[in-house]
Design a protein around this nucleic acid. Structure first.
Lengths: 151, 151
DNA sequence: GCTAATAGTCAGTTATACTGACTAGTATAG
DNA sequence: CTATACTAGTCAGTATAACTGACTATTAGC
């Protein structure tokens, strides 16, 4: 009757329970962005859009928040700059530093990515129930807040 | 009072709500495994341990279930074979095929990874509340089941 | 003003995915 | 029963996204 299952599948590890929806979401969001002409914005760039402040942020700042090295962040920013999603300006106060600022196109993608992720949430609400989806989000928010402190 | 927040941070995208706990979990589980001498088992190998059947599985089978190419799966399996976590045998029925089977050490790591992920769940239960963690898992399971059909 | 710290770059490496072309067996249609 | 199509897996090459270590330029602190 039931299909053959591996040992961890039977036990439904929390890892897969978090990973599968995340992968699904990423595919939806970045797939849609690619189809609307923003194929050069990939999932790895999400941290730039996520952590950049309205008035702009430094590379080091972004790297720290994203939990990656400044070299890695510099590469992400360089890619987004080439493709017109961010501008990189010299910091007027600190001669060592640069400010990364979203362009109009970058702001558009930032809003669009958020809109698409909300679309997926709505879709999920249809699958598991509206109330359930709200509760799921609440619980994830609670966990996120507790974890953010120590991560 | 409140720290400066970027636009998506204010809106708490579901992507980050899933990703942050997942990353935390992966770090805990694979960090612990590394500390107990299994540093060659990395997060990418989790799909092998996750989908392999007790009597063994084929590369192509595993690749399909994991949603990666057979070449990528072959590389993961080769790595685990070199380090003693799986055995690769010729399929007695089908001359083209091979069977990937967990070794004793592989079974140990499979169980250990699951145990560690349950430890993290317990830790999270202490952070957000026992009932809340149970509910969170239930909701993720529900979503997972609905998504698995279409993924 | 010297020294330490900080912002960012350059060069090289590793891990993990991908595509395309291939070999070797298996299944099937005529 | 053989020619052809399909399937399992490999080999070779590429892209992406991370890493470390060594470096330059600038700022801050004593």
């Amino acid at each position: 009757m039931s299909k053959e299952k591996s040992y961890p599948e039977q036990h439904r590890s929390i890892g897969a329970l978090l990973r599968i929806p995340f992968q699904y979401l990423a595919q939806e969001v970045y797939g849609q962005l690619a189809r609307s002409g923003h194929g050069e914005v990939r999932a790895s760039h999400s941290v730039v859009f996520r952590y950049i402040l309205p008035e702009g942020s430094r590379i080091t700042e972004l790297a720290e928040r994203a939990g990656i090295t400044k070299q890695s962040m510099a590469a992400l920013v360089a890619h987004l700059e080439i493709h017109g999603y961010v501008r990189v300006e010299a910091d007027p106060i600190d001669g060592r530093a640069k400010r990364v600022v979203l362009t109009k196109q970058g702001e558009l993608v930032q809003r669009e990515a958020l809109r698409l992720s909300r679309e997926v949430e709505k879709q999920w609400a249809r699958l598991i129930g509206e109330k359930e989806m709200i509760r799921l989000r609440q619980l994830l928010e609670k966990l996120y807040d507790k974890l953010e402190v120590r991560v």
